[in-house]
Design a protein around this nucleic acid. Sequence first.
DNA 1: CGCCCCCTTGAGCCGTGTCAACTAATGTGG
DNA 2: CCACATTAGTTGACACGGCTCAAGGGGGCG
Lengths: 227, 227
Amino acid sequence: MTIHTQPHSHVFTDSYLPVAGSAAGIPSGNRILRRHEHLIHAGARIRHPYLVISGAFKSYVNYENGDSQVLGFHVPGSVLGYEVLLDGYCSCSVVALDTSSVKRLDSLDEDTRRLLTENMCNEIQRLSRQLHLERKCCTDARLAAFLIDYSDSQGRRGYSRNEFILPMGRRDLAGYLGLAPETLSRGFRRLRDRGILTASTNHVKLLSPERLRNIAGVASDRARQRC
Amino acid sequence: MTIHTQPHSHVFTDSYLPVAGSAAGIPSGNRILRRHEHLIHAGARIRHPYLVISGAFKSYVNYENGDSQVLGFHVPGSVLGYEVLLDGYCSCSVVALDTSSVKRLDSLDEDTRRLLTENMCNEIQRLSRQLHLERKCCTDARLAAFLIDYSDSQGRRGYSRNEFILPMGRRDLAGYLGLAPETLSRGFRRLRDRGILTASTNHVKLLSPERLRNIAGVASDRARQRC
DNA sequence: CGCCCCCTTGAGCCGTGTCAACTAATGTGG
DNA sequence: CCACATTAGTTGACACGGCTCAAGGGGGCG
């Protein structure tokens, strides 16, 4: 049996329906977090899950030796805190990349539980895909897959698919993609040289989404050497 | 906040308590599968989860271009089929590596749901760790981490920690660790040359678990080049 | 203005994938 | 039971991608 996966969907876990309208204004009663402020501390216990309303978050783990690993990015629509289905102890930290707001999901009713379960399931599939991506695909394909994915995520939320601002810095993005920052920088440069996009640090404009999608799609070939 | 993870525990998802005694004889009423026989086909729908009683399984995904990815190995005590918590459609296939038996969990009661949820949670953490391992650690550290983990798993189930038979072939193990079979072979050779183990294909004997654990533990350093 | 941090660019090295050849193990049919 | 075919595992040679180290811009903020 063959699974036909699109190159790299669902990296952004917006399992909830798009909330494009309400994302502009920040609803009262929600918790507001500023850049670098933590929503969740690894090892701490949470009692309620959160729904991301606006902004963007990064989840990560720190290891004993000091280096940290970026686990994922979370945009409006994402649900955080599936650990409440178990003991509530979080294994990773979640920090705001920019001024952001979240809605606390107070009642752990049937719908919420299902939402969290779907969230976990998506997470497993995302990690599997990421593993496969890092094993088989070169820098450019990984970067292309990420950009296509982010582009789609933007589109689903009602924003432009071809022009957007990345909420995370190069270091974090490199960490997420399993690359050194220098390598990521060179990846951007190659895509820019080929006229596929323009990227002034965080402002990205896709000039040829077709070719970008192609680069990401050839991904699963043995395209580690031939991009 | 720093998470203190042991080098690589829980790769083998024996969330259920060890069933060492009952593993010897195969209880009646359970489903028996022979080598290469599938328990779950990707894309198919399952209605009940399974508990592995004896033998060993491999879960994997096939991609369009033909190459497949090994997702995990499952020994007695593992639970398979968390997808029943959602729509029941499986995203990966599960095949027996040897003559094996499973027990179908008929009632989806509270305990079973919790077991499956824990299973998913462990899976997420395992995949995160694997990602980190593959990004930061060289061949020998990855192999060492796997062997330590398998050794511990054997120990928990009441078998020898220092001498065991790996149920999977080199190709599958290489695929799981994200290595080429040749590279894995060289990894075994280096560990053998250093007097840390003996390995005649599947029969592994750990001569110096201490040093092996050390190699796996130095893992998270920037030990990609210096093992 | 000047400091700091982030990003970029260059040079060189090392680990691992690939290709190819050889051996060992397994299975098959006569 | 042996000869053969087939697959799995090992070993060697080589090339290449990405990491590391080091230095050079560029933008934000005090």
